[in-house]
Amino acid sequence: MSSSDRLTGPALWRLGETVRFGWREFHAVNPPSVVVGSILPRMLLQILFFTLLGGVLAGTRHQEYAFVGGLVLGLAMTVILYVSQVPVADKESGTFWRLRTGHLTPMVVFTARALPYPVVGFAVLLVSAAVVAPLAGLGGLAVRLLPVAGIYLLVAFTAMAAGLAAAAFAVGRRAETLVSNLMGYVVLLCSGAFLPPGRIPALDAIGTVVPGRHGLAAIHAHLRGDPWVSGVVAEAVVGVAWLGAATLVVAVQIRRARRHGHDDFA
């Protein structure tokens, strides 16, 4: 493809190049040594902690519940926290103006570059589950979860969308650490991952729009032998809604950037 073709080429080619760039960017910021030496142990120990805590607080049945939810917690909290690296990279490199003037809209570029986060997060989750389940004596439960592993992947994408919205909202004030962590703790409290729904009504109300809540309900429904497809659909809808929220936030940031004449999410 010649250079002129590339300038006017199909949107799909541009999108593919952006995705490819996203992988290279992810690899540069999170090389295998960081994924294996930092992200994996953190997620693994987080899941182990919540699983053991469930058993300590409310016995074996809650330990099983906490393991199923702990996998969602470890995955969602990690993806939400780390995906903020995408807009932060533009903030720190001063490259937001190039996104604004490109052929692809900034939100499409952000989303394409963020794709490695849920995919790698899901891979790390599989390894974590394989280690934690035997340690906690829950190997049988882990095997029963295998047919619905795809729901965890869906949750990873929902968390990515929510994480992008949170980061795009906060990165201008350098508050992405605070907002991303806050979002992670909202997932902990409201997703039903550790606290079963019905305990604190206010948290349940917030939980309906929190990543992981409906996916987790679908997983528990599968374990009980109940229909679970509606939970998956609801989780997907929540993900799309968060992607819409992120698009809105980025659009507002662009509008502000044009009005104030700056280009760094300030």
Partner: peptide, 20 residues
């Protein structure tokens, strides 16, 4: 990060432990 570890984390842990 101070807000995260000194405010958000203890609040979340207390809700989680006490709510169970």
């Amino acid at each position: 990060m101070v807000v995260v570890v000194a405010v958000i984390q203890p609040v979340a842990l207390l809700f989680v432990v006490a709510g169970t």
